[in-house]
Design a protein around this nucleic acid. Sequence first.
DNA 1: TCTAATTTGTACGTATGTATC
DNA 2: CGATACATACGTACAAATTAG
Lengths: 177, 177
Amino acid sequence: MSLYLGLKDQLLKLILEGKYVSGTVLPTEHELCDQYELSRVTVRKALDELKKEGVIASAQGQGTVVSHRKNGFPSSLDLIALVAPVHNPFFASFMEHFERIAEENGSLVLFKQDFKGKTFQSDELWANYEMIAYQQPMKEMAEKAYQRLAVQNNQGELWQASSFVLQGEVVSFKPKI
Amino acid sequence: MSLYLGLKDQLLKLILEGKYVSGTVLPTEHELCDQYELSRVTVRKALDELKKEGVIASAQGQGTVVSHRKNGFPSSLDLIALVAPVHNPFFASFMEHFERIAEENGSLVLFKQDFKGKTFQSDELWANYEMIAYQQPMKEMAEKAYQRLAVQNNQGELWQASSFVLQGEVVSFKPKI
DNA sequence: TCTAATTTGTACGTATGTATC
DNA sequence: CGATACATACGTACAAATTAG
């Protein structure tokens, strides 16, 4: 695993464990450089990832704080992650049709176009989810939706994704939490 | 405006104008460096922003392609952006209450914690929205929700945010498109 | 009110790794 | 195997915003 993803996961672990609760001011970038013996570029890359997912927030001259909301409550909305390769006319039309149906049923469809065959980024966080009807290729495919799901998850650590749709196949999963 | 945001807006403009339609392979990072006379770090930073918002996607060894979906269709779901400062116990409790109510009414609440007083990043994209009941401080505050709204917007250029809630005040706005 | 220190933000150059073609 | 293209990583410097004094 890359250095910045390693640091990201370490910080995320501290946050999920409650070592850094919401509102806590994180160590400065320079302090993190010293603590983990990494360059500032790498440290900032890790922090960028966490910012992207809404776990932390930062401001010039002030510092970086944890903005991870605990004690959320489960959502009643269905969250559906849909992943498609970038070039795929069939899937594009299927998707449009599917989105319409889903909306009519009060579900939210999060779409993410992606290339095929990326690696799994954050095993630890993903491990919080228990896959039902788990199939081998699913883990790879599920990873691609990880970011979007995590974003929603961080809007209060609450979104129960109740179904997972991929290439016409529906696989359910539920949070372990 | 910073160099990377300038490049980001230029590329975004080309995409929105249809110069780069979905599926188009963008010039390589090196070519962009030459074209705009910027370092690769800066070019990558601009591309990162666009990736974060789901406008483009990239893969090692392949290239960077536009994944901006046009011809979406409007959603029937209300999208509500809610912005709060990082330290604010009152708002935190208000938010939880509000989220519950919103969900019961079939709306999606996107929450973003943030510091106060950031600058407006992408006027051009935001200009696509016409604010109703516009008030001066709203522009600043609305900016903070821009990213989340844009993400949704890029899930098919479609999400009509029909209400905008901020600090207990409701301000409606609709897309010009 | 002004200054200096602190902290994050922006930007360049460079090198190496890794996946794809 | 070589060429290409994105990914990761280090060092450095300065800018900008905030805070402390």
